[in-house]
């Protein structure tokens, strides 16, 4: 028995020492490889900037070896794209990416590990590799699990304006509102109209798709879809109305201010709150008195919203100060005081 235990401990220790030895070798190699890449990057970056800016006729020569070329180019282009404020011509960056990286990513999508495939998808999108549009779509069709790879592949297809994913965006179950918005953000106006068409044709459209479309357009202040969003404040579903009101806050306008009147007296506190927000967002001073009345609403959020939006008017602070000092209602005084002292941004 004792011998067995001694052998187990010695055996495990030996295995660990072997792994440690391998890890040390691997780490030393990785550090030297990384140094090599960093050195190449440091010397090539200025040369490539000159080349991209057109101040250098011939392309600088990359280190030998496909793998190191791919790594250097990927790192360099990633840095260029993330720090590019328009100084570097995107067309040239894209040409370099197509030349050095597209074949590599195509192979990775076919044969890479899960993490490698996702990384490839991130870069396909970042570098806008149009030549891989079909590959990305075909890869998407193979995916069964709704995980990060699925989501990133859909993002890539949307970025590359692949219209075959539109039915997926609208009909696929399990996509969150936030994720659908991410996809809408990537689509051009033509595809957005196609989405709207599907939404309007489909009576049983999933609520999260509708929410995403309404909210997204408000956030982006998309003029072509304003009337669709505004129409939705008359929807029979409360949640849709709220989303539309929220979206209109982002647009910062409504076509006719009187449409707000019924919402100030709504039985739902959320609608009273959004009505207050809209009065501020659309700069409607005619509702100042109504907002002052809402300072004594039974619900804290409505009071908060009313106070917050009174403050947006030029004389808002004076009005709140007056309420804080003289109003008979303790709730109103309290919330006015709170708003005067805590000048945070507009709350979410």
């Amino acid at each position: 028995m004792l011998e067995l235990f001694v052998w187990i401990v010695v055996g495990l220790l030996a295995v660990q020492l072997f792994i440690l030895f391998c890890l040390i070798l691997w780490k030393a190699k990785a550090i030297s490889h990384e140094n090599k890449i960093n050195e190449a990057l440091n010397s090539l970056k200025p040369q490539y900037i000159e080349y991209i800016e057109g101040n250098r006729p011939a392309e600088p020569s990359l280190p030998r070896g496909k793998s190191i070329q791919t790594m250097v180019m990927e790192k360099m282009l990633d840095e260029f794209y993330s720090s590019n404020d328009g100084d570097l011509e995107e067309r040239k960056l894209n040409q370099l990416a197509e030349k050095y990286l597209s074949a590599h990513y195509r192979r990775t999508l076919k044969r890479g590990s899960w993490a490698e495939r996702i990384n490839a998808l991130y870069f396909i999108e970042d570098f806008y590799l149009l030549s891989l549009r079909e590959d990305a779509y075909r890869h998407f069709l193979k995916l069964k699990k709704q995980d990060e790879e699925f989501r990133q592949c859909l993002r890539v297809c949307a970025s590359l304006q692949e219209d075959r994913i539109l039915p997926v965006i609208v009909e696929k179950e399990g996509l969150s509102t936030g994720f659908i918005k991410e996809l809408l953000f990537r689509l051009n106006e033509v595809l957005m109209w196609e989405i709207l068409e599907i939404i309007e044709d489909k009576a049983d459209i999933a609520e999260n798709v509708l929410f995403a479309f309404i909210t997204f357009n408000g956030e982006q202040k998309n003029e072509p879809f304003f009337s669709f969003v505004e129409k939705k404040i008359y929807d029979e579903r409360k949640e849709v109305r709220l989303k539309a009101m929220n979206s209109l806050c982002n647009y910062g306008k409504i076509s006719d201010s009187s449409i707000l009147d019924p919402f100030f007296g709504s039985e739902y506190w959320e609608e009273r709150m959004y009505a207050a927000k809209l009065a501020g967002a659309c700069n409607l001073p005619q509702y100042k008195q109504t907002l002052l009345e809402l300072l004594s609403d039974a619900v804290w959020w409505v009071r908060f919203s009313a106070a917050e939006n009174i403050q947006t008017f030029p004389d808002g602070e004076t009005l709140l100060r007056h309420v804080a000092l003289w109003d008979e209602d303790a709730y109103s005084r309290d919330i006015a005081k709170h708003m005067l002292t805590r000048k945070g941004g507009i709350s979410a």
Binding site: S113, E182, A348
Partner: peptide, 22 residues
Amino acid sequence: KEKKLSRNEQIEELSINKDTYP
């Protein structure tokens, strides 16, 4: 599985996304 995943690429979107909860 996640060993080689680029974490920075993964969160790029979130830093500008309006749906990233405050």
